[in-house]
Design a protein around this nucleic acid. Structure first.
Lengths: 141, 141
DNA sequence: CTTCGTGCAAATTATTTGCAAAGTC
DNA sequence: GACTTTGCAAATAATTTGCACGAAG
């Protein structure tokens, strides 16, 4: 799904035309598959000469998340991060605690089977999970 | 490992006598196996008639974490939570997004094998991970 | 006397809210 | 005109920092 498709879907879901801010934010997320904080996103918008207020960014992130375009990722450092929510790209992250590098990792099958077992054993309907690995990348270790 | 043992270890590791604050905090964690935020901890301290400043609590949490007595758990709601770091009790959590109930869950073997595979495949030294499941508990679903 | 733990106030950081102006159908 | 998006200033909320003081070795 490319940016145009996403924007199309956005129009449908939100019942109106996608704003320049929305388009810009989605474009940034398209280009950056790794999770971004508000300020990182803000910085990237600036580079594209798009000036938006911090509040607007926060609000759009909430809005886009609500409509499932992006999802929230938490690295436990007190900042919210978001990345594009492509079904075909569900993954987790390797985070280097030294150089802060972030890498994607796909381990879905294992997690899904764990979730099934839990749901059954505990009668708990799992909607989502957090799973990130922290440690040292090959350069830092 | 009971509270006395922990306090003993604390003395050794820190090279001095454990303070009343440290003892009180560790005792609370002993009694509450679920992760606590600073304010929840503060509330429980108050119930035991122990008055400590917020700053002190934050500093002790950082201190105890540094010495591996407690570990940080993140539920992605902007608050840091901590729980006792007993080797024999490593576990993850089921968090009900509706009633906020939290339950423990043990799924270590599966995770360890996933970690091994990742370490090998990606040449990444995993130190720890986040793994919490969010959804609806049996009462809320 | 030096180190560590503590309290208190102020600062910082991330995020949210209220309200008015601007844009879109 | 009704509804959504945006900006700006102010408010919150969680956490951290600076500084002074008291307790313990």
């Amino acid at each position: 799904m490319n940016t145009r498709d996403i924007v199309e879907e956005l129009k449908k879901k939100c019942g109106s035309k996608a704003t320049r801010t929305q388009k810009a934010i989605l474009t940034i997320f398209e280009k950056n598959h790794l999770p971004l904080t508000e300020s990182e996103l803000q910085a990237k918008l600036s580079k594209s000469d798009i000036v938006v207020n911090k509040t607007t960014v926060y609000r759009q992130l909430a809005h886009l998340k609500e409509h499932d375009f992006i999802k929230e990722i938490d690295f436990g450092d007190g900042k919210k991060r978001f990345e594009l929510n492509s079904n075909d790209r569900h993954h987790h992250h390797l985070v280097c605690t030294n150089c802060k590098m972030v890498d994607d990792i796909k381990i879905d099958n294992d997690v899904i089977s764990i979730e099934r077992a839990i749901s059954k054993a505990r009668n708990f309907k799992i909607m989502h999970h957090s799973l990130e690995f922290f440690g040292l990348c090959k350069n830092c270790k």
